[in-house]
Simulated scan of single mutants.
Amino acid sequence: MYVAVKGGEKAIANAHALLAKRGRGEVDAPRIDYAQMRDQMGVLVSRVMAEGSLYDPDLAAKALLQAQGDVLEAVTLLRSYRTTLPRFGLTVAVDTAGLPSERRVSATFKDIPGGQQLGATFDYTHRLLTDELGTPEVPNLEMPPSAAMPRVTDLLGVDALIEADKPAEGWNDPDPGDLTREPTTFPMSRAERLQALNRGDEGFLLSLGYSTQRGFGNNHPFVGEVRVGEVEIEFDAPEIGHAVPIGRIEMTECQMVNQFVGNTEQAPQFTRGYGLVFGRGERKAMSMSLVDRALRSEEFGERIVSPAQDEEFVIAHSDNVQATGFVEHLKLPHYVDFQAELGLIRSLRREFETRHAADARMSAGKDQNGEN
């Protein structure tokens, strides 16, 4: 509690009023509705949901409006709201292998079962600013429900050219921890790391992923597959004896294929990096998969020489809410701390000046004796 803030209640109230006025803009202009934000700013809403750890496009859109477009503030609002929600139970692990994809592309094979599905993407657009967006006419290009889209990485798995995506038979796969309810401890399991990366700041993960491509890591990546589509969520209801479908949510999944030359115990093969986020978030999913693979360096006996391979560095600094709070708290009053350091600096300067004055007198005395 910053006691010094108490005396400025009126100033704080005025600051809140001014913030609301700035956020409203011209009073003659219509106010933006959260439904407009949800439907027309879908990529931004997806980022807030992913980093806020809560899938609710309406709430994410409302948080963005309240935060006046400040993504990190909106994420903080969404996480704060999330902590107030009751927890009724757990859902069954989602099966993304068979999700009907709106978008599904692979950079490793041209012809893949089910075909390449470009979907909605900026990848092929001309980056030219237009005056009017207009209302585009979109033809009906929906893929028939019967079209099968097996995982591209399964093609490599046939000849054991890529590591298995599931543990060997007989291996005890423990339930993953929940980072929202348990303290972070190192070293972490891969499941816990993926949770942290999923909640991590997109820009931070993008920079780390980029660093691995530039040689600060051991990645030589290929996009095995990127999928965007809706997946069914099932609630585990023990009282009725089976899982209950409760709805569908949009997700983005990336499987990154990485080179591994092998070692004395493991044959040369491709390895995996994995990313999964709420909504449309290809950049985040790809960055997440690059960093996931970099953090598996110890697992494959690789030297840890770069920031992206350091688990504690990556996880401890990837959470944008924690980072924002620690950085922005510097704006709050630190009067007592600063006065203490100011006094220390003044004291050290006096000692410094006294010492240098003494050294100058000693030097002058030596010169005088030399002249005599």
Rank of each mutant, 00 (worst) to 15 (best):
M256C: 14
P139R: 13
H220T: 07
P139C: 07
E202H: 01
A196D: 00
V138K: 12
G134Q: 08
I249T: 03
T130K: 13
F186K: 11
V244S: 07
A196N: 01
H126S: 14
L129A: 14
E232F: 03
L128M: 15
D123H: 09
T185L: 01
M251Y: 02
A191Q: 07
Y210R: 10
T130V: 15
S207E: 02
A164Q: 11
T185H: 09
A147D: 02
P221Y: 06
E234C: 10
L194M: 12
V228N: 01
A147P: 01
F122K: 09
F260S: 03
E250R: 15
S211V: 03
G177A: 07
E132S: 07
P187V: 09
I249E: 00
R181V: 14
R127K: 10
E182H: 13
N218K: 12
R151P: 06
G170Q: 00
V138I: 14
F216H: 12
I246T: 15
S211F: 01
L156C: 11
G157I: 08
A147G: 03
R199F: 02
V138E: 11
P176L: 04
L197M: 04
P176I: 05
G247N: 07
T125K: 07
E142N: 13
D178I: 02
P144E: 12
G229D: 00
E132P: 03
I162V: 15
A196K: 01
M188A: 04
R227Y: 04
D159I: 10
L206N: 02
P167D: 10
L205T: 00
S211T: 04
A168F: 06
P145N: 07
E137Y: 13
E182I: 13
T184E: 06
D236Q: 08
Q259Y: 07
E163C: 05
E142D: 13
P221Q: 06
P145T: 07
L206H: 01
P176E: 08
E230M: 10
E225R: 00
T252N: 02
E225C: 03
Q255M: 14
L208W: 02
P167T: 10
H220K: 13
G177W: 05
W171G: 05
L205D: 00
F204H: 00
G209N: 00
R248S: 13
V223W: 03
L129M: 06
L155E: 08
V231A: 15
T252K: 00
E234H: 14
V228W: 03
N258V: 03
A160S: 12
T252P: 01
P238Q: 11
F204G: 00
W171H: 10
I162Y: 07
M251I: 05
L205W: 00
E192T: 11
L141A: 15
R214A: 07
N172A: 15
V158T: 14
E230W: 02
A164F: 04
G200C: 13
G262M: 12
P238L: 12
M143V: 15
G217M: 05
E132W: 11
L205M: 05
A164T: 12
R151L: 14
D131P: 04
M256V: 10
M143Y: 09
F186R: 14
P136Y: 14
